[in-house]
Structures are given as structure tokens and as C-alpha cells.
Design a protein around this nucleic acid. Sequence first.
DNA 1: ATAATACAAATTGTATACAATTACAATACA
DNA 2: TGTATTGTAATTGTATACAATTTGTATTAT
Lengths: 231, 231
Amino acid sequence: MIVNKKQACQEALVHRILTLDIQPGSTLDETLLSEEYGLSRTPLREVFQKLAGDGYLMLNENRGTKVSSMDLTSMRNFFQSAPMIYAAVARLAAENAVGQQIEDLKHVQSLFRRAGEESETQDMAMHNHRFHRIIGEMAGNPYLSPSLNRLLIDHTRMSQMFYKPINSKERLLVWEACDQHDAMIEAIEKKDPGTIVNLTIKHWELSRDKIEKFVRPDPLDVDMGLQQAGE
Amino acid sequence: MIVNKKQACQEALVHRILTLDIQPGSTLDETLLSEEYGLSRTPLREVFQKLAGDGYLMLNENRGTKVSSMDLTSMRNFFQSAPMIYAAVARLAAENAVGQQIEDLKHVQSLFRRAGEESETQDMAMHNHRFHRIIGEMAGNPYLSPSLNRLLIDHTRMSQMFYKPINSKERLLVWEACDQHDAMIEAIEKKDPGTIVNLTIKHWELSRDKIEKFVRPDPLDVDMGLQQAGE
DNA sequence: ATAATACAAATTGTATACAATTACAATACA
DNA sequence: TGTATTGTAATTGTATACAATTTGTATTAT
């Protein structure tokens, strides 16, 4: 079996970045990684350039390569542009999707559902990522896809955080998201742009609320610390 | 004076691509260009990777790098997504622009107007390109800017074609576009998102009509070829 | 004459040595 | 004690030699 070491390295890095195995903002060591993936520095640097172009990494002249950070500004920009891009891409996907792509989407969705059933949160996030990238491919618009893909990078990295602790209440939300995926597939098959845009907005709002809930959880009872003293 | 050869090479290539000096779809010769810009192939290839990431070039494994093509599909996708992205970016620009950026924008606009007065069509296209990129920078949304910048690449390349032959009727359209730029600057200074979105749509429609007119010119008189024979 | 094959040339990809730059630590100085 | 300064180590950038792949051409067989 012939494998392309360079491509394997690239995919491995993408996976490690999306799963937060390599944290946002952390520096990548050329020498270390080139040894780890059995490449010399030249092709590894080309991988870096490619991943930087896709928005995974940031190259800083003479001072190394960092994983794209996720600070407050990024989050604000993310929430500002995600719904518009997601909706636009979904509409185009419904208009332009071809058979093979729909098959791929169904397959990834089945993997996503299974990961949900088995509470494999990391797999869930990755299959979800792939699901939405396929929708991007269906849209087939090279002017929009770079924006979509950048949004998905950060969306997936965020979801790694909030998928983790699943209580029974939150578990219901997972099934809801999963069912939305199914409905989206159906709308794409029927080439129904109106429906998929609505579904996409709902899907976005579900995810957004989940993120918001994670960032701003229910506050602790203000009396908590006072009970003993006050009682 | 210290110059960064690599960066100079990159900027030169961008300029040559945007001005159609290197045509869409044409292949780039690594050896030739590395000699031309006094670099070895390694850093030149890194420039290629960067420009490919920005949408100027396409890298094909083991079969060279080509300038991004502009075929019928690209055009369709372009017209489909440009208004949405332009409008969204303009709105964010009005909301987020800072003083220095507004100064830069005014300066580029003065260069654009002068180029128009002197009918330097190539300069016009390039200053116009810079004008709209600055608006992209003002928006400061890293999720949208890659889409905007890709649109601008192809928009500028198209405008190289249709700016060229300026008759007195078309000249008026140039002044109209120029005045729209001024109005846009004003709206940005006033932080007036509503106005700039409207202006941007109008500006887009003007440009779109111009492209359409170029692609589908007034047809020749159908009797032209028959006059002699029929008379 | 056409198609298939083999060989040569050109092009692209990778490894490695070397140069340039930055980061860090030790020392000198205020 | 705190701040410059210098030298050294580590990291990043570039050139070049070499390997792999593709492209073009000539030769052979059908």
C-alpha cells in the first residue's frame, strides 16, 4: 500500500488541530514534527503553508508557526458571519448537489448518529465537521467555501469543548441536531432550497444556544456561600 | 535599502496576475521565475503555496502551478455570491473602521480618481482593487475576508478587460463609480451601515451591468451582411 | 499507418547543508 | 537591584544536490 507521507502528515495535523489535541495558539516545532512524520523540513513547511492558507495555522516570519487562536474577537466575528454563510451555502447545496455527494452525506450522517449513540464525543464533532464540509462541497462555490471552511474549523473546535460533558438534558439536544441532519438531507434530495435554509437556521440556533450555555452556564446560587454563616 | 526578495516576488506575481500580464489558466515555470526574481526554487515554491492559499494560483501535484482560471462556472459563482459578500463586508466596515484605515481609503480613492482622469485603465483597476480590499480590512472579519479577496481577484481581472476601451458614454460610468466611492467613504466616516449597504449594492449593479455589456455587447445589425446582395 | 513500448529530457518533489535571524542567558554597568 | 550588552544556542530561511514523476519522442510490432 502506497501512502503519501506528506498528505498523511497534513491530515494528521488537521485532525489534531480540530480535536484540540494541539491547542489554539500553540507553536509548532518544525524539527520535531518533521521527525514525527518522517519528512524533511522542506515538505513539512509546504504543509504548513497549505494549512495556513486554509486557516488552520498562522505563519509569522522568522518566528514560527502557530495554530490559529480562538480569542474573544474571533468569537464575535464567528457569530456575526456564520448564519449568513451557512444559509447561503445550504441553499446552493440544495440547488447543486449531485448523487454521489448525497450518498457521501448519508454515510457520514450514519457515522455521526452512531457516534452519538455511543457518546463518542470526539468522533461526533469530527463527523459533524465532515457533514457540513460535504454540504460546502455540494454548494460548489469556490468564493464561499473558504469562508465556510474557516467557520467550520472554529465551530468544530468549539464543539469539542461543549460536546464533552453530556447530561441527559443535553443528550436530547444531540438527537435534535441529528434529526435536523436527516431533514437537511431530505431537503437536499428534494432540491428544496426554502426548507434547507430554514433547517440550517434552526440548526445554527441550536448549536449557538449550546455554545452560549457552555460559555455562560446557569450561575451558582448566590446564597450558596452564605448558607452556613447566615443559618 | 533592504528589500525582501521573496515578498517582492510575491507582490510582483500578484500584480502580474491581477493585470492579466499572466493569463488565467497559464502555467508558471519554477526555474524561469526563480531566476527572474533571484530566488532559489524553495522560497519561490513557498510563494506559490501562499498565493494558492489566497486563490491566485492552483497547485497540481506533480504537474505544476497554474494561474486560477476564469471559466463559465467561476463567473456564475462569482455573480451568485458577490453582492451578498460585498454588502455584508461593507456593513461591517462602516461599523468597525478606524481612523487610519479611513485615511488610507481616501488616499487610494484620490489615486483612483487621478488614474480615471488620465485614462490609465490598468492603474484604475489596481487602485479600485486596493480600495475594496481596504474596505475588507475595515470589516476586520477573518471569516469573510478570504471570500471577499477571492471575489476581488476575479472582479479585478474582469475589470481589466472591460475598463480598456473607453468611449465617452462609458466614461460617464467611470465618474459615477468614482462618486460612489466618495459617498461610500462618507458613509463609513459617519458609521452609517444602512447607507453603505445601499451604496454598495448600487456600486455592484453598475459594475455588473458594465461586465454584462462587455460580455453581451449590442449585436451587429442583422442586415449588415445582406445589404450589398439585397440592394 | 497506428498503437504500444521504451527511452530520454524536462519538470516537480525531497533531503540536507549552510546562512540568517531570533531567543536566551550570562556578564557588565548604572 | 534593575537594565543594557554581548555571545551562544536554537530556530527559521535559502540554496543546491539528488530522487521521483511526468512528458515527449523515437522505435518497434501489429
